[in-house]
């Protein structure tokens, strides 16, 4: 049933001056699932993310959200439709406090973001919601600390809180546990599991135990094409997948 698909790509291709980063990928993300995108370095995972969120224009093919073609929409508009991404490097606004970071996401629907004459305190109506969102990711105590001074794991948590402030329908997480210590990985994985309720998550992730733990469906990319798709058990026993991973390790 196509209604079940929240995000879909059809033969999407991305070429950079002759180099083919994504070579005709058709991806089907089911509503409510946690979908993993894995593959060796250079497989085109992050490029797929950039295409899906319109940070890069696709060379060919189409991208559909809720069955509607979004291939040519501006990136900000895709975000406003509820398809919101995170970044590989933690994306926070460093000189803004944790609270202000979350408030940036909350203030747009307020419709006052062009009011350069409005006082700063006009945003304080959002403080309670922002604090609640920070509480959800265990950052309540650090609300007034500039984001740039937070430790790495906390920055990622803040990024997640900011993303969740938009109440996204689809969350695209680009390597949410990259560069994290063991404890932080566990905490972020828990967090993802918690926030995935009632949402769809598409994540690129290198940590296979996180993928095995969280993802309902996994798509393996290699050299810009789909190599395999299925549950973790199916994918991990696929000989082509094993070869691609071992081949890249050698």
């Amino acid at each position: 049933m196509p209604d079940d698909l929240i995000l879909e790509t059809r033969d999407v291709v991305k070429e950079f001056r002759g180099f083919v980063a994504v070579a005709g990928v058709s991806l089907k993300v089911k509503r409510g699932s946690i979908h993993g995108l894995i593959g060796p370095n250079g497989a085109g995972k992050t490029t797929m993310f950039n295409l899906l969120t319109r940070f890069l224009p696709a060379t060919r093919g189409s991208i559909l959200h809720r069955g509607e073609d979004v291939t040519r929409l501006p990136a900000a508009q895709v975000a406003r439709r509820g398809v919101v991404r995170s970044f590989q490097i933690s994306a926070v606004f460093p000189s803004l406090t944790a609270l202000e970071n979350v408030r940036i996401a909350l203030q747009r629907p307020l419709g006052t973001s062009f009011r350069f004459w409005a006082p700063a305190r006009s945003l304080s109506v959002l403080d309670d919601r922002a604090r609640a969102l920070l509480g959800d990711v265990d950052l309540a105590a650090l609300a007034d600390v500039p984001a740039g001074e937070l430790p790495y794991g906390r920055k990622r948590a803040l990024e997640l809180a900011t993303t969740l402030a938009l109440e996204p329908e689809v969350l695209l997480l680009d390597e949410p546990t990259a560069g994290m210590g063991h404890e932080d990985v566990g905490r972020v994985a828990e967090l993802i599991k918690r926030v995935a309720k009632g949402r769809t998550v598409l994540m690129v992730e290198h940590n296979l135990s996180v993928v095995a733990d969280l993802c309902d469906t996994i798509t393996v990319l290699a050299r810009g094409a789909v190599l395999a798709e299925g549950s973790y058990a199916q994918v991990s026993s696929d000989p082509a997948v094993r070869e691609a991973y071992i081949g890249s390790a050698a």
Binding site: F55, A76, V84, F87, T162
Partner: peptide
Amino acid sequence: PRAISLGYD
């Protein structure tokens, strides 16, 4: 990029 991803034009 982050501001764009939060829906700002």
